[in-house]
């Protein structure tokens, strides 16, 4: 009996290995490229993977790539780049080289960062092999939140830098029945911009542009705005903590889930859908600041009203 047992076990193992190998070959290989496997990047990747696994359980062969630590395996058909740096690395690795490049879904990055990098590979975009879920909230959503939270506000103040997408905001303000007061605030122009904008603005809208809004400039901006009784709408939770009245943003989990759904759609259609703004979002309020402005705001209610408005508009 023992004579047959070991060969039988070996054959069984061989069969199993053959089967696994065959099964793996049927899987879709996806590389997820992260600058670091922690913090917001890891949270985004985890949410993305969970979303895909719910829809296509066990169908994906995941490969997490940290930095430029590329695996020896052949390039996959699909790559997810989390953050600007990851997208840059992916571009260098695949688009610069000859040969077929994978389809790349960039996520957790600002639209401008994505567009700057995508500008060098327009063909990829056209062919649905490069797309993104960006972090930028649509201007219409930001302005709708202002209308909901501050119904009396008419003048929206904006401090602009070279990276500020002003035309889209102007268009949205026009549609929302609001007026924009914008002043260039990069370099040494911040204080003159504040002097120009704050006397007329009912609310200040912070837009992601490191030339204007950074850890050095935010304290004087918040201080000056608060002295002038102008509330500030920020684009991250840090703004609310720092003293902004409210913030509108999407969490890494929300962005990850949306990216997962987009990836599944791409598997089905063979090409990536166009660039998407965040679908889910969070409204956060600084209760202490709201109280000083004489406002009783409920973040949950505002968030629901905003979502309802968007659904109705669709």
């Amino acid at each position: 009996m023992r004579r047959f047992f070991l060969p039988l076990l070996a054959v069984l193992c061989l069969c199993l290995m053959t089967y696994e190998s065959a099964r793996a070959e049927g899987k879709i290989a996806v590389w997820v490229v992260l600058p670091e496997n922690s913090g917001v990047y890891a949270a985004t990747a985890a949410a993305l993977r969970a979303e895909v696994e719910v829809r296509l359980p066990g169908r994906i062969a995941w490969q997490v790539v940290r930095g430029t630590d590329w695996p020896a395996a052949p390039a996959p058909k699909w790559v997810v780049a989390v953050g600007v740096a990851a997208l840059q690395d992916v571009e260098r690795k695949f688009f610069a080289a000859s040969g077929p490049a994978p389809a790349v879904l960039a996520t957790l990055l600002p639209r401008q960062g994505f567009e700057q990098l995508a500008a060098s590979t327009p063909a990829q975009m056209r062919e649905g092999r490069l797309s993104a879920v960006v972090l930028d909230q649509p201007p219409s959503r930001q302005l709708a939140l202002i209308r909901l939270a501050l119904p009396a506000a008419r003048q929206v103040g904006v401090l602009t830098g070279r990276a500020t997408p002003l035309p889209a905001l102007e268009q949205a303000a026009h549609e929302a029945g609001l007026y924009l007061t914008a002043a260039p605030a990069q370099d040494e122009m911040l204080f003159s911009a504040l002097r120009m904008v704050l006397p007329v603005a009912d609310v200040l809208l912070a837009l992601p542009d490191p030339e204007v809004f950074n850890s050095r400039s935010v304290p004087p901006i918040l201080t000056a705005a608060f002295r002038r009784k102008v509330p500030l709408l920020g684009f991250s939770p840090a703004y609310v903590k720092a003293g902004a009245l409210l913030a509108l943003y999407s969490t890494p989990s929300q962005i990850g889930r949306q990216s997962g759904a987009m990836l599944v759609a791409a598997f089905a259609g063979g090409r990536l859908p166009p660039v998407q703004p965040p679908r889910e979002f969070v409204v956060e309020i600084n209760i202490d600041v709201a109280r000083l402005f004489g406002l009783r705001l409920d973040a949950g209610q505002l968030s629901e009203s905003l979502a309802r408005q968007e659904n109705d508009a669709r």
Binding site: P35, G39, A85, P110, G161, A163, S236, Y239, K241
Partner: peptide, 26 residues
């Protein structure tokens, strides 16, 4: 961080900021 020059990166969305209007000052 190898972000594009003058460009925005996700760091702008996820960096901490100094707490300016603290509760104790309000």
């Amino acid at each position: 961080f190898p972000a594009p020059a003058h460009g925005v990166s996700e760091k702008d969305y996820f960096s901490d900021l100094p707490e300016v209007l603290s509760v104790s000052r309000l």
